[in-house]
Design a protein around this nucleic acid. Structure first.
Length: 827
RNA sequence: GGGCGAGUGGCGGAAUUGGUAUACGCGACGGACUUAAAAUCCGUUGGCUGAAUAAGCCUUGAGGGUUCAAGUCCCUCCUCGCCCACCA
């Protein structure tokens, strides 16, 4: 008898599938299409890790499942090859990024093959291929031409280790999310993408796609739309007429406003420092203000956080008029006010805002209560009670007194607009996307700077702007890309006037290539367009997109923005790129901590496969671990369990093939098979991989019991095995293909059709009825499924086990749920 | 501080949406095979009382409530995870 040996069968079938081009999708086909997308990997030097395997295995299971349901499935894969880690890796190993990428991808490719994924490799590419980034550059130019890519001199987050600027999304807790280095602020001329123009579209679009709420909510929060009002305050003691505009979502509390605070970067603060404006009294505070601003701007975000919420600030010497109260409010400068949100100036309402309260306490400013909660005490101003968010009534607020806060908000907005005191305004937390990187290993930004014509796009026929081969690609401290040193590359003629001009030397972030890569799979070899229209029309939106939660506010948001823009340009047929999105959970190390190189607790999937368990067992164990979206620790022993399960199934098929067969009926076998088909089908539709596998295990255990009881006498064994192999095949493609052929089939199992089940065989001839007394389980009785209540109750009452509980007692009530339960209620 | 989610055996996790809590797997224990180990196979395995594979009681983070019946619904509280955060 053959033993189950994955090392023999897995490479054999992998080679055969590749030879047969089994998983290549057809452009245009009568079958309905299904695009299964998983995030393509960044080819690091570490190879595939378990997180990759989890994602790609789920994708493979879903793709195979759909294929067996008659879909023309596209399950593609490529490499997100540009980016800092490869460059750092190359520098460390003294090779070029190109060579590092080649080397890493060769390694990834080998690992991919060993897992038996049904991927269409004929459409694969790397974002660093000139044939690919030509179109990344071309798409960038469409943004530029539409005014959505622009340059600005701004303070950006600078990673001193990677020596590059970063987008807001790449900074986590004041550190670069890739290398964990503290970021600094630097003022540089940068390319930006106007993602803020699409803020509302990005919110709106979420209503028409199938994203779990934890993903949609995270994007909503990240965009952070706030409806409020910009209120203008006239400066009372300035010789020139000055106005400070503040943004607030709570104008209802404005009778409680007692001061105004400006961000250190605010234009009025700059004016004060330059003494362009001096109070009428002649007493300038410009020195105090300048000292404070200098000190606060030198602090990093992390330093500010470390100081906690202790408020600092300086009085500017100016006052603003609160027209509602007729009182003058001192204008302060403080770094708790962010230049990047709203107008960079806030009105202080210390009675109802914790930060304003702390500021007022620190500098002894008046505190007024204007809202009282349902059971609140308005007199106690020692408690930093927050604004009553949901309910509350106005007090001390003139014509708003007695109103509910929501009514008051609306009324004061109308009032302020009528009296020209302010204007309704929507503010967003979302910032424009900083798109410049001062690095070698990325797509050159295809712009030429001409003294005469400014930023000029590189003409289409000169694309791609090739990344030049270069000896020194190490980043510089100057904030200039290493490309700037290659003078014969930099110095070109202006495409408009032919006069000497210079190329843009910044490159794009690695999020550029991944913002549109799914579209390229539809037409990967196209040399004249990023993808042909008919193919874009055929494949349309990605039907299921699986990826990491960590990309929700990075890649996923960026790429939705790009796609929405392309849709507006009529370059793609669907308003959203991804019809459905799911995020898989993280696999932790067995000790519940994150896997990391420094801790040395990384599990290498190849070692598991090579140790003899094989890819099928690994795929099963990772899918069996937990629900797909749950973070969960890795269980090294789990693979032994799934390997054992596959061995048991293997052995049973061997015994069947070698032993005598019968021609009898077995209702038990029929029921078991129909049951497992139903179970696995339903679970797969709901992406409940772990319980589907549990069902398959249970079924195998049941087969063993049936075999022990009646041997292989039933004529249905062949069908039973074939059915279970089919529903196992998305999870464990190799063993199911092998046994399928051993059972005499000639064609591949992976193009066979998904088995159906027949409810009629699921009907049990006897069902267990639970008998309770006062809700406590006391007996089980076997009855016909369609038994009448009267008969069931009679049968239950006769049960000897019930006598101690029922004997002599009045039955007050009897609850009968057909097929499930009888409950007798006694005193 | 805000948003989202979760607390079930020694562990990962099931539970048809209110109807047998602990499926399936791991681990552990006992046994078979073996010179031995590994592998494999067969049992047992929530806790307490008990000689018991008799019987009973208890058990889904804590405490209340609704119900014939609650892991599931409602209220109060505690703990943990992820994301955001001096965002006005």
């Amino acid at each position: 008898m053959l033993r189950y040996n994955p090392k023999e069968i897995e490479p054999k079938w992998q080679a055969k599938w590749a030879e047969d081009h089994l998983y290549e999708a057809l452009d245009f086909d009568e079958r309905p299409k299904f695009v299964m997308l998983t995030e393509f990997p960044y080819p690091s030097g570490d190879g595939l890790h378990l997180g990759h395997i989890r994602e790609y295995t789920y994708g493979d299971i879903l793709a195979r499942h759909k294929r067996m349901h008659g879909y023309n499935v596209l399950y593609p894969m490529g490499y997100d090859a540009f980016g800092l880690p490869t460059e750092n890796y190359a520098i460390k190993n003294k090779i070029t990024p190109q060579a590092a990428t080649d080397q890493n991808i060769a390694n990834f490719q080998k690992q991919f093959e060993s897992l038996g994924y049904g991927i269409d490799w004929s459409r694969s590419f790397r974002t660093s291929d000139p044939e690919y980034y030509k179109w990344t550059q071309w798409l960038f130019l469409q943004f530029f031409k539409a005014g959505l890519a622009y340059q600005d001199e701004i303070a950006i987050n600078w990673c001193p280790f990677c020596k590059t600027g970063l987008s807001n999304e790449e900074v986590v807790n004041g550190r670069h999310e890739r290398c964990d280095t503290l970021v600094e602020k630097r003022v540089l001329n940068q390319w930006l993408m106007k993602i803020t123009d699409y803020a509302d579209r990005l919110l709106e679009g979420l209503k028409n796609v199938d994203y779990p709420s934890r993903i949609a909510d995270q994007q909503i929060n990240w965009i952070g739309r706030k409806d409020g009002i910009d209120i203008d305050y006239k400066v009372t003691n300035s010789p020139s007429s000055e106005v400070i505009t503040t943004f607030t979502t709570r104008p209802d509390t404005n009778f409680g406003a007692t001061f105004v605070v400006l961000a250190p970067e605010h234009p009025f603060v700059k004016k004060i420092m330059k003494r362009e404006v001096v109070p009428e009294s002649g007493h300038s505070h410009s020195e105090t203000v300048a000292n404070y601003v200098k000190k606060s701007l030198s602090k990093s975000d992390v330093e500010r956080q470390e100081e906690g919420r202790k408020k600092t600030g300086a009085f500017t010497g100016f006052y603003a008029m609160n027209e509602l109260t007729g009182k003058e409010m001192p204008i302060w400068v403080s770094d708790f006010v962010l230049a990047s949100f709203g107008t960079g100036a806030v009105v202080g309402v210390p009675g109802h805002d914790l930060r304003d309260f702390e500021f007022a306490k620190e500098f002894d400013l008046p505190i007024i209560r204007v809202v009282v909660g349902p059971d609140g005490d308005s007199s106690d101003i020692t408690r930093p009670e927050q604004v009553q968010e949901n309910q509350g009534k106005m007090i001390n607020s003139d014509f708003l007194d007695g109103l509910d806060i929501h009514e008051a908000t609306e009324k004061i907005m109308v009032y302020m607009e009528e009296h020209q005191m302010g204007k309704r305004k929507v503010s967003y937390r979302l910032r424009d996307w900083i798109f410049s990187r001062q690095h070698y290993w990325g797509e050159p930004i295809p712009i030429i700077h001409c003294p005469e014509h400014g930023a000029v796009p590189v003409p289409d026929d000169q694309l791609p702007v090739l990344l030049p081969d270069v000896k020194n690609y190490e980043p510089t401290d100057t904030g200039e890309s290493p490309l700037a040193q290659i003078s014969d590359w930099v110095n070109v003629k202006c495409p408009v006037c032919g006069e000497p001009a210079k190329r843009e030397t910044d490159t794009m972030p690695n999020w550029a290539g991944s913002s549109w890569y799914y579209l390229r799979y539809y037409d990967a070899k196209n040399n004249s367009e990023f993808a042909a229209k008919d193919k874009l029309d055929y494949w349309g939106a990605v039907d299921m997109y699986l990826g990491g939660m960590e990309h929700t506010t990075l890649h996923l948001l960026y790429s939705r923005f790009w796609h929405q823009f392309l849709y507006d340009q009529k370059l793609v047929p669907t308003p959203e790129p991804y019809q459905a999105r799911r995020g898989q959970g993280i696999i932790l190390a067995a000790d519940d901590t994150k896997m990391s190189k420094s801790k040395g607790n990384i599990v290498n999937p190849s070692e598991i496969i090579d140790s003899g368990y094989g890819a099928d067992a690994l795929r099963l164990s990772i899918s069996f671990l937990a629900p797909y979206d749950q973070t969960t620790p890795w269980s090294p022993e789990g693979v032994a369990g799934t390997h054992r399960f596959l061995s048991r199934l293997w052995t049973l098929v061997q015994e069947y093939s070698e032993g005598p067969k019968g021609n009898e009926e077995s209702s038990e076998l029929k029921r078991a098979v129909n049951k497992v088909i139903k179970k696995v089908s339903n679970d797969l539709d709901a992406m409940l991989f772990n319980t589907a596998i549990a069902g398959l295990m249970e079924f195998t255990n049941e087969l063993y019991k049936i075999k022990a009881k009646e041997g292989f006498v039933s004529k249905d064994w062949q069908w039973a095995f074939e059915s279970v192999l089919k529903i196992l095949s998305p999870f464990a493609p190799h063993i199911s293909e092998e046994l399928w052929h051993q059972l005499g089939n000639k064609d591949t199992i992976h193009l066979s059709s998904w088995p159906t089940y027949d409810e009629q065989y699921l009907i049990e001839d006897k069902v267990k009825l639970i008998v309770q007394v006062n809700g406590k389980l006391r007996a089980e009785i076997e009855v016909e499924p369609d038994i009448k209540e009267e008969a069931a109750v009679k049968l239950a009452k006769q049960n000897p086990r019930l006598q101690p509980y029922l004997g002599g007692q009045d039955i007050k009530r009897t609850v009968y749920v057909p097929g499930k339960i009888i409950n007798f209620v006694v005193s």
